[in-house]
Design a protein around this nucleic acid. Structure first.
Lengths: 228, 228
DNA sequence: GCAAAAGTGATAGTAATACTATTATATTTG
DNA sequence: CAAATATAATAGTATTACTATCACTTTTGC
């Protein structure tokens, strides 16, 4: 995986940051430590002051990179979805059979993230936990429409559309391809969360994965023979 | 609907409030106006000070009913799920055919909420919007395990279990009944949200409902003929 | 090699939030 | 009608989410 991606920069919307954190070592430290700190404390208890201490600097330095913690969260989650998008595109592009392609896509998009480091400063497994716990908070806001217009959710939108196209390639008559695609992406985060905190609300555990569940769900739904 | 429920009190966990808001007219006003205010401003911008002004009282009065706004949100969402549970139980209890029963359940749990007032002070349609936008924030916290142990999510847990049982009644060999049940409940909120803010990520709109999508999804999945 | 520019770290300050505490007044109830 | 309880108002604290300023350091461009 590493070789495929080395030297590759994941693009996020430029309005999410004041100064590109990838452009300096302090910026990279901000990204690295913010992921750990949000994972440790939760987004509500995470502050730029605490982050400043963590990077042996202070609040004001962080503000030079990000306007506020909401934008930082949008940056981190956009990066995550961009990273998933690369995995999806490279992982499926040489598969001819639509059914096989879709199954691979679902695997990539719903599996747990192992330590598999594309970049030295981003711990993808930790970022995955942050996404599971905090991604919803990035769009469940009163500013969502304006921010969506500004392109802050562009990567995520594109990812759902890619999955939708793969669903339609398997069954062009399926009526709910977008909804199913968004259900798989969002639902996978949710099942991973339930696994940890509400085990009675899911079959997923150490042995059963969200990937198995969603693969079965999509397969049975698209196998259904339509009338006429 | 009204007749069935009149005089019925929806039970929520007693540790969610300091003083039962149903026990006084000020308490009812707190519930009534908090729903509207959270819906207007979003949970992050909602404060007890603003709520105090709204009920022509002040902050300190609100604190006598609820420890903090997080507990108030838990109270409101628990009430909502309790209300849904009554609809589910009364709406399905005389249906014999498991398939028909499940279809009715999905309809009740995924449909949009119309003005249909069980209580004078709770606007269920408005509360439904609050649940769509804010419910996730009530459990995506670092305190979720402790609070779950305390029973703060009891009603929701029970609702998923009820739906799970109905799924198993249709197909006792289906391997992912809990996951499917939690997907339907959570996914319905999500599809309603997408309909409003990310229309390209869902087929749901004025004509297609989340209910149709989930009914189709569950039907096709449980219609699938197993090998052996 | 040096001056200018840019980046960083530290401190101070503001308005708002999320409370706690106290007290006076109003209302309920035994 | 007195005692208990509920409410309203005010004040105060620590923290948050910033903005502004300034000194110091590092980078860079000629």
């Amino acid at each position: 995986m590493k070789d495929l991606f080395s030297g590759l920069k994941i693009e996020v919307n430029k309005n999410l940051y004041v100064k590109d954190p990838e452009s300096s070592s302090l910026g990279k430290k901000i990204i690295e430590k913010s992921i750990k700190l949000i994972n440790d404390k939760g987004f509500e208890q995470f502050t730029f002051k605490k982050l400043g201490a963590e990077i042996s600097s202070n609040e004001s330095s962080v503000y030079r990179y990000f306007e506020n913690k909401h934008k930082l969260l949008l940056y981190l989650t956009s990066w995550y979805w961009g990273w998933k998008e690369y995995q999806l595109v490279f992982g499926t592009n040489n598969i001819q059979d639509p059914r096989q392609k879709l199954e691979t896509a679902i695997n990539i998009l719903t599996r747990s993230v192992e330590k598999d480091s594309l970049t030295s400063h981003i711990d993808e497994a930790c970022l995955n936990k942050v996404v599971v716990n905090e991604f919803s908070k990035s769009y469940l806001t009163k500013e969502v429409d304006r921010e969506n217009k500004e392109g802050f959710f562009e990567v995520y939108n594109r990812l759902v559309l890619r999955l939708k196209e793969m669903i339609l390639a398997v069954d062009k008559d399926y009526l709910y391809a977008s909804s199913l695609a968004s259900t798989v992406l969002e639902g996978a985060l949710h099942q991973h969360f339930l696994k940890e905190h509400f085990p009675s609300l899911t079959e997923c555990d150490n042995k059963v994965t969200p990937t198995q569940y969603f693969t079965h769900l999509v397969n049975t739904t698209l196998n259904y023979t339509h009338n006429g």
